[in-house]
């Protein structure tokens, strides 16, 4: 049973349709990428899951049950538009946010101590938030999001405002949280991190889901039958143009790196058969499209059609 399920969720603001029958399924203990261009409806969907906004139609199920107000303690949400009280002290504020999520003061303090030590930020405890840099504030917000150990975590652009070192630190934390049993929804425009972290994705555009599934499966679905071959030969191979299209070739001391597209239903082995007799093959691999390419292609396609 998926941890979270939305079934035909629709939402309109006046005449503007923000979500149109959007269904997603988030498997337990997985990282789910919620993708889409700006204004596609991602934030609206996330707000509906968090019960900040109310949907017009559809259902949201958490562990198979219709979601209810008390489930809020089982969700941790890091919104894209996020901030802290500037005049409040870091520790005081973290405790306050944890208490709002239902933790007792003592428990919040204990857990915060663990996280502050882990991130090596103990010395910030009595500082006012306005004294911290933006990246530092983001760390506090991250801790506040995960502190109550929710089973569902929703991160909206979690890496904005972080330097590369801290991005890596955060990625590790997110994967660790998943390994410890949490289910994670992850919304971002950074496709590289999607490939790195996500197990499943859904692509929302113009208030509809236009693509969803397991990430490798999607990549396979959109593969262009292109293979990269590295081979050693005195001169470049010439292949029958009716069956193989050489997209580009680099030559380095008689080591050739070629991208070749298979045409007319030829199989990879057919290509190998062409090469092996006269050349020494060093590597042979299929070029799958990046999520970035799929994203751009899908969104542009959609807009081209409408």
């Amino acid at each position: 049973m998926p941890t979270l399920q939305t079934i035909n969720v629709s939402k309109s603001y006046g005449k503007f349709k923000a979500l149109d029958k959007v269904s997603i399924e988030v498997e337990k203990q997985s990282v789910f990428g919620l993708l889409g261009p700006n204004g596609a409806g991602k934030t609206t969907l996330i707000r509906i899951i968090n019960m900040i906004s109310v949907m017009d139609e559809g259902r949201v199920l958490l562990d198979g049950q219709a979601i209810k107000q008390s489930d809020i303690h089982n969700i941790g949400y890091l919104p894209e538009e996020r901030g802290l009280y500037k005049k409040m002290k870091v520790g005081e504020q973290a405790i306050y946010l944890a208490q709002l999520k239902g933790l007792s003061k003592a428990e919040a303090k204990k857990r915060l101590k663990y996280w502050f030590e882990k991130f090596e930020i103990d010395s910030w405890w009595n500082k006012k938030v306005e004294e911290l840099s933006k990246g530092m504030q983001q760390k506090i917000q991250f801790i506040a999001t995960v502190l109550h150990q929710p089973k569902l975590l929703i991160f909206d652009e979690p890496f904005s405002g972080f330097d590369p070192i801290n991005v890596n630190l955060l990625k590790d934390e997110i994967l660790q949280l998943r390994n410890n049993g949490a289910t994670i929804i992850f919304s971002t425009h950074n496709m590289a991190s999607v490939e790195e972290l996500c197990d499943h994705i859904a692509l929302i555009d113009n208030s509809k889901t236009i693509l969803s599934g397991e990430i490798n499966e999607i990549k396979n679905r959109f593969k262009a039958h292109i293979f990269e071959v590295v081979y050693h030969r005195k001169t470049e191979l010439s292949l029958p143009a009716a069956h193989f299209e050489v997209l580009n070739t680099k030559n380095k001391n008689n080591t050739f790196i070629s991208q070749i597209r298979l045409l007319n239903g030829n199989k990879p082995n057919d290509l190998l058969k062409q090469i092996i007799p006269t050349a020494e093959v060093h590597s042979f691999k299929e070029m799958l499209p990046s999520m970035n390419e799929i994203f751009i292609q899908q969104v542009n396609n959609k807009e081209g059609r409408s």
């Binding site: 949400y77 919104p79 996020r82 901030g83 802290l84 009280y85 500037k86 709002l100």
Partner: peptide
Amino acid sequence: SRIVEVIISSVKP
């Protein structure tokens, strides 16, 4: 300060 969305994910507006 953009804290409002963080808070209303825990409590009703």
